[in-house]
Structure formats: structure tokens, C-alpha cells
Amino acid sequence: TRVETATETAWISLVTALHLVLGLSAVLGLLLLRWQFPAHYRRLRHALW
């Protein structure tokens, strides 16, 4: 049971790290898009909202 718990903890930390990385890359990508294509971003936002 001790090994299982350790594996579970490792998986949880791995998944958390993955989610953090994905979230950060998504935010960075959005910022980059907004910085590179302001007109396109505004049009996209206008279409979405």
C-alpha cells in the first residue's frame, strides 16, 4: 500500500505540473497572438462576444 500511495502522489504531481505547463503555454500563446495580431484579435473577440 505504501508503494501504491507513492505512485499515486507521483501521478498527481505529474498531472498538476502538466496542467500548469499547459495553462501557462495557453496564456503565453494568447498574449503572443494579441501582441502580434491586434486587429485580428479584436475582430476575433468581437465575433466571440
Results as ranks from 00 to 15, higher is better:
residue 47 A to T: 12
residue 22 L to W: 05
residue 27 V to N: 01
residue 43 R to Q: 14
residue 37 F to Q: 00
residue 23 G to R: 02
residue 41 Y to V: 14
residue 24 L to G: 08
residue 24 L to F: 15
residue 3 V to L: 08
residue 20 L to C: 13
residue 30 L to V: 10
residue 19 H to T: 15
residue 3 V to W: 00
residue 18 L to F: 12
residue 16 T to Q: 03
residue 23 G to S: 09
residue 18 L to Q: 00
residue 44 L to K: 04
residue 1 T to D: 03
residue 2 R to A: 13
residue 48 L to Q: 06
residue 33 L to P: 05
residue 27 V to K: 04
residue 38 P to C: 10
residue 4 E to C: 03
residue 3 V to P: 01
residue 25 S to Y: 06
residue 11 W to F: 11
residue 5 T to G: 01
residue 4 E to T: 10
residue 38 P to Q: 14
residue 45 R to N: 04
residue 43 R to P: 05
residue 8 E to Q: 00
residue 45 R to D: 03
residue 42 R to V: 09
residue 47 A to F: 13
residue 15 V to N: 06
residue 40 H to P: 10
residue 5 T to C: 02
residue 5 T to I: 00
residue 29 G to C: 13
residue 47 A to H: 13
residue 37 F to R: 05
residue 46 H to A: 15
residue 11 W to I: 13
residue 22 L to C: 10
residue 13 S to W: 15
residue 18 L to A: 04
residue 13 S to P: 03
residue 12 I to P: 01
residue 19 H to Y: 13
residue 46 H to Q: 10
residue 8 E to I: 01
residue 14 L to G: 03
residue 30 L to R: 02
residue 23 G to H: 02
residue 23 G to Y: 03
residue 48 L to C: 15
residue 15 V to L: 13
residue 47 A to D: 04
residue 23 G to W: 05
residue 35 W to A: 04
residue 1 T to P: 04
residue 31 L to F: 14
residue 16 T to N: 04
residue 33 L to A: 08
residue 24 L to I: 14
residue 14 L to N: 05
residue 23 G to V: 14
residue 33 L to N: 00
residue 25 S to F: 04
residue 16 T to E: 00
residue 5 T to V: 03
residue 41 Y to R: 06
residue 20 L to H: 01
residue 37 F to D: 04
residue 28 L to T: 07
residue 16 T to S: 10
residue 9 T to S: 11
residue 34 R to W: 04
residue 3 V to M: 03
residue 35 W to H: 06
residue 45 R to M: 06
residue 4 E to M: 08
residue 7 T to M: 15
residue 24 L to T: 04
residue 41 Y to C: 15
residue 15 V to Y: 07
residue 12 I to W: 02
residue 45 R to V: 07
residue 29 G to P: 04
residue 43 R to Y: 11
residue 7 T to K: 11
residue 4 E to S: 09
residue 17 A to Y: 02
residue 40 H to Q: 13
residue 34 R to M: 10
residue 47 A to M: 11
residue 28 L to S: 05
residue 38 P to E: 11
residue 18 L to S: 03
residue 25 S to W: 06
residue 38 P to M: 14
residue 19 H to P: 02
residue 38 P to N: 12
residue 32 L to Q: 01
residue 3 V to S: 00
residue 6 A to L: 04
residue 2 R to F: 15
residue 41 Y to N: 05
residue 29 G to N: 02
residue 33 L to R: 02
residue 19 H to S: 15
residue 18 L to H: 00
residue 37 F to H: 05
residue 44 L to D: 01
residue 13 S to H: 05
residue 34 R to C: 12
residue 32 L to N: 01
residue 15 V to D: 02
residue 45 R to Q: 06
residue 48 L to I: 15
residue 43 R to A: 08
residue 27 V to D: 00
residue 1 T to L: 14
residue 16 T to D: 05
residue 8 E to P: 08
residue 36 Q to G: 13
residue 3 V to I: 14
residue 9 T to Y: 07
residue 40 H to V: 11
residue 36 Q to R: 13
residue 44 L to H: 01
residue 25 S to C: 13
residue 32 L to V: 13
residue 6 A to W: 06
residue 37 F to M: 08
residue 19 H to R: 00
residue 17 A to V: 10
residue 2 R to Y: 14
residue 21 V to G: 08
residue 47 A to P: 04
residue 36 Q to L: 11
residue 13 S to Y: 10
residue 28 L to E: 00
residue 34 R to A: 08
residue 42 R to P: 07
residue 31 L to A: 14
residue 2 R to N: 15
residue 10 A to P: 04
residue 42 R to H: 15
residue 46 H to R: 09
residue 43 R to N: 13
residue 3 V to N: 01
residue 23 G to P: 06
residue 18 L to K: 04
residue 34 R to T: 07
residue 44 L to I: 15
residue 15 V to E: 01
residue 48 L to G: 02
residue 41 Y to G: 08
residue 25 S to Q: 07
residue 24 L to R: 01
residue 38 P to T: 11
residue 32 L to E: 00
residue 16 T to L: 13
residue 4 E to K: 07
residue 31 L to Q: 05
residue 12 I to M: 08
residue 13 S to F: 13
residue 46 H to W: 05
residue 21 V to M: 08
residue 33 L to T: 05
residue 11 W to Y: 11
residue 2 R to L: 14
residue 12 I to D: 05
residue 35 W to D: 04
residue 36 Q to M: 11
residue 30 L to G: 12
residue 7 T to W: 08
residue 32 L to P: 06
residue 15 V to G: 01
residue 4 E to L: 08
residue 31 L to I: 11
residue 28 L to F: 09
residue 16 T to A: 15
residue 17 A to F: 08
residue 17 A to L: 11
residue 38 P to Y: 15
residue 41 Y to W: 15
residue 21 V to W: 05
residue 48 L to T: 07
residue 5 T to S: 02
residue 38 P to F: 09
residue 43 R to C: 09
residue 31 L to K: 00
residue 37 F to S: 04
residue 29 G to T: 11
residue 43 R to I: 09
residue 40 H to L: 11
residue 22 L to K: 00
residue 17 A to T: 10
residue 10 A to F: 02
residue 23 G to M: 15
residue 29 G to L: 15
residue 13 S to E: 03
residue 17 A to M: 11
residue 28 L to I: 05
residue 14 L to I: 08
residue 3 V to R: 00
residue 46 H to D: 06
residue 35 W to F: 14
residue 11 W to V: 13
residue 3 V to E: 00
residue 41 Y to D: 02
residue 49 W to G: 06
residue 46 H to Y: 10
residue 44 L to V: 14
residue 10 A to N: 05
residue 49 W to L: 07
residue 40 H to T: 10
residue 39 A to T: 11
residue 26 A to Q: 00
residue 17 A to C: 12
residue 37 F to N: 06
residue 36 Q to H: 15
residue 34 R to V: 09
residue 44 L to P: 02
residue 38 P to D: 10
residue 30 L to A: 11
residue 15 V to C: 06
residue 44 L to A: 12
residue 10 A to K: 04
residue 49 W to V: 02
residue 14 L to C: 06
residue 12 I to L: 09
residue 48 L to F: 11
residue 45 R to G: 06
residue 39 A to F: 11
residue 29 G to R: 02
residue 43 R to W: 09
residue 48 L to K: 00
residue 39 A to C: 04
residue 37 F to W: 05
residue 46 H to E: 08
residue 15 V to M: 13
residue 47 A to W: 10
residue 16 T to G: 05
residue 33 L to C: 14
residue 31 L to M: 14
residue 20 L to W: 06
residue 21 V to F: 12
residue 44 L to Q: 03
residue 39 A to H: 12
residue 30 L to E: 00
residue 2 R to Q: 14
residue 11 W to K: 03
residue 31 L to V: 12
residue 29 G to K: 01
residue 35 W to E: 06
residue 27 V to I: 14
residue 34 R to F: 08
residue 10 A to C: 02
residue 5 T to P: 01
residue 9 T to V: 11
residue 1 T to I: 13
residue 17 A to I: 12
residue 24 L to E: 02
residue 2 R to H: 15
residue 10 A to H: 07
residue 30 L to K: 05
residue 8 E to R: 03
residue 25 S to K: 00
residue 40 H to M: 13
residue 33 L to D: 00
residue 31 L to D: 02
residue 49 W to E: 02
residue 39 A to R: 12
residue 22 L to P: 03
residue 22 L to M: 09
residue 20 L to E: 00
residue 45 R to C: 07
residue 29 G to Y: 04
residue 32 L to Y: 12
residue 43 R to G: 10
residue 32 L to G: 05
residue 35 W to S: 07
residue 21 V to L: 13
residue 38 P to H: 12
residue 21 V to Q: 00
residue 45 R to F: 07
residue 49 W to A: 06
residue 22 L to I: 13
residue 13 S to G: 14
residue 49 W to Q: 06
residue 39 A to E: 14
residue 3 V to G: 00
residue 18 L to W: 04
residue 34 R to K: 14
residue 46 H to K: 09
residue 25 S to I: 07
residue 31 L to T: 11
residue 6 A to K: 10
residue 46 H to S: 11
residue 20 L to K: 04
